[in-house]
Simulated scan of single mutants.
Amino acid sequence: MTKIAVLVSGGGTNLQALIDAQNRGELKNGEITAVISSKAGAYALERAQKAGIPGYVVARKEYDSNRAMTQALVARLKELDIGLVVLAGFMHILTEEMVAAYPNAILNVHPALIPSFCGAGYYGLHVHEKALAYGVKVTGATVHFVNEEPDGGPIVLQKAVDILPGDTPEVLQRRVMEQAEWIILPKAVSLFCEGRLSVEGRTVLIQEGEL
């Protein structure tokens, strides 16, 4: 059984999607055993508590750099014997110590079809504002492995979502979450825990089975 830690900074909607999938038995061979927040008082910690999952705080403001915070996070993850790290609305850049400690074992969900609308500065509502401003007809979400480049790691799963007339960034954000993020993130986590993912260069290969 792979022990999963979910890293959060805010409300934890993607965390809730993972908790719901776990409760439905959809995280095969995996279990969320820790939720770690970058700030105290994040609502995601309440979600974890309600689900009976231990919550921890590694607060960014307590460290003088992202590197120092990353080193503290790695130490906590190792202490908890974590096998998979999931970034679910974690709002801080992690330095190379994290990737070195968990190569191809950190998953992130991004609210666009990478390589569109991704990289430094593209997070949260900004992604949807940019997609609407550009006038694309289709957006979506991507789950990818994390490497040293923001949103630059090998892609595991993607799901497209149509942009509709009259969409606002907020409306589009909700649709992308409901129709893409909350579906493909639990799937990707389960595939990892089942040992069905392998990485060759930039390509993630998925062993046959149910998706």
Rank of each mutant, 00 (worst) to 15 (best):
K3M: 03
R202M: 11
N104F: 09
E210D: 15
Y56D: 08
L84Q: 05
D81M: 07
L185Q: 01
L107Y: 05
N104T: 05
R60T: 12
A42S: 12
L18Q: 01
A133C: 11
Q158W: 05
P169N: 07
P115S: 09
R24W: 00
I155H: 08
L18G: 07
Q179M: 00
L125E: 12
Y43V: 09
N29T: 03
A68V: 11
E79P: 01
L197A: 10
V74Y: 14
K28L: 12
V86K: 09
E200P: 07
A88S: 15
A59S: 15
I183W: 00
E129M: 11
T95S: 11
H144Q: 11
Q179H: 03
E79Y: 13
K137N: 13
T33M: 12
V109Y: 03
D167V: 10
T13Q: 08
L125N: 04
P54L: 14
L27V: 01
I106D: 06
E96Y: 09
V109K: 01
E208V: 01
D162K: 01
V199A: 10
I19G: 04
D81W: 10
E46A: 13
Y122M: 15
G10M: 09
V156N: 05
S190L: 09
G25M: 03
D20G: 07
K3D: 07
L84A: 13
A42G: 08
V146A: 10
A141Q: 00
L132F: 06
A68C: 03
E148Y: 09
E200Q: 15
V156S: 09
K28E: 14
K28C: 03
L18M: 04
L125F: 07
H128Q: 14
G10D: 02
P165D: 06
H92V: 10
S116C: 04
M177L: 14
A100M: 10
Y63P: 05
D151N: 00
M98A: 15
A141T: 01
G25F: 06
K159N: 08
V6P: 00
S190E: 01
A112W: 01
V109Q: 01
L132A: 08
G152Y: 09
Q22T: 02
A131M: 02
T2D: 12
L73E: 14
D167G: 02
P115Y: 09
T95Q: 14
V8C: 12
A100Q: 15
F192I: 09
A131F: 05
H92W: 14
E210G: 15
V156M: 10
D162Q: 04
L77G: 03
L73T: 13
P169M: 07
I82P: 08
G30L: 08
K130H: 11
G195A: 12
P154F: 09
K187E: 12
V57E: 10
H110Q: 05
V146S: 08
I155T: 10
V161R: 04
S198P: 06
E129D: 14
L73I: 13
Y122L: 03
C118M: 11
I19E: 01
L164Y: 05
L185D: 00
R47V: 09
V85T: 05
R60V: 02
V57L: 13
D81S: 15
D151V: 00
L125D: 05
F192G: 10
